[in-house]
Design a protein around this nucleic acid. Structure first.
Lengths: 182, 182
DNA sequence: AGGCGCATGTAATTAGTTACATGATTCA
DNA sequence: TGAATCATGTAACTAATTACATGCGCCT
């Protein structure tokens, strides 16, 4: 259900295709939402049936035809009402790396460090992508408040994650200095 | 599937009941995993059938009987193998508040500020809980590396979230100083 | 008397993932 | 010539949520 509001929110800024939404999720929203193209397309169909959005078909020659979705009045009304009236559900996070971290007791120090290094590399890439996306975004005509706020959130999230990784490596190294491994 | 490894990880530290696991998820792991009792009980059944865990039934008089689960050798082996060999899946986050934030363009400034204040209040409570849980935990006999690392992660996460909220309020106030609302 | 903590489970439904399916254009 | 981008969809399956179900003891 929340996915529908996520989609309404995205489309509220600018009419978009399902394909656009997929890109937005992974470029700008990885830090707080995720979905797949199959789920998005089916959800858009349902929302159109409910009268929350409608589409305009654009015939293309060099690439496949596309459906550009916009909000209906009902869709906009529902979005606003949800945003201000619906009590916030707590965030739900599934982070496998931290599950592995929680289970460090079954690993050797070398394995721990390797896992952390891998995640540092990964998170650095994400941060780089987000940084460059922000730069590109800021040098544009329109800049949307929601985008400015959430992109800053993403950058802070990545930095916090990376700082914690560095701290964790230190903590582990200190813990095992005069103790040996596992 | 990852849930099974999360459960193996928890049980690897200390034998636990389904009920214990539910508590651990919400006290210590809210920052990186979540599940419900119904899912956990059914998953524990499956894992026992697969020979990853086994239980000891404890008959109680003042409260209901309980099943204390421990890892089998196979369970421990599977956990280690998963931790060191399985490539990390990217974290999946579902944070409704940030979806609302992304859609701030449809709201009034008052509504934005109210939403942020609500989330600050909520996050402060979470941080307090985590802080007091950590203090209680540190003053104990055994202290597990995974727990130490992930609890620190949680505290950093909450602080980052709160800092960002403060920053966002400032940003919004500055944006609308001489412009009016919506 | 009513709610919370302890403790476990199943059934029904919804949400999400993975696999299957197509096809032109562009770039290396 | 092989992979990536654009673009949309359905089918099969797995994961997760919500609702239903029980029952004692303790605290207010």
């Amino acid at each position: 259900m929340s996915l529908q509001y996520a989609l309404l929110g995205i489309i509220s800024k600018k009419p978009a295709t399902g394909y656009d939404v997929v890109r937005i999720f992974k470029e700008q929203m990885v830090y707080f939402w995720n979905s797949t193209h199959s789920q998005i397309y089916t959800e858009l169909h349902k929302m159109e049936t409910k009268g929350l959005i409608h589409h305009e078909l654009v015939i293309q020659h060099t690439s496949p035809n596309k459906k550009i979705y916009s909000l209906t009045d009902q869709g906009r009304k529902d979005l606003v009402q949800w945003a201000i009236e619906q009590p916030l559900k707590p965030a739900k996070i599934k982070d496998e790396f931290l599950i592995k971290t929680a289970a460090f007791n079954v690993l050797t120090v070398q394995d721990m460090i390797k896992l952390i290094d891998d995640v540092i590399e990964r998170e650095n890439k994400v941060l780089e992508m987000t940084n460059s996306w922000r730069e590109h975004y800021i040098n544009q005509e329109e800049n949307d408040l929601g985008t400015m706020l959430t992109i800053e959130y993403g950058i802070r999230y990545s930095k916090m994650y990376l700082d914690w990784c560095t701290w964790a490596k230190d903590y582990i190294e200190n813990s095992f200095l005069n103790k040996g491994s596992s």
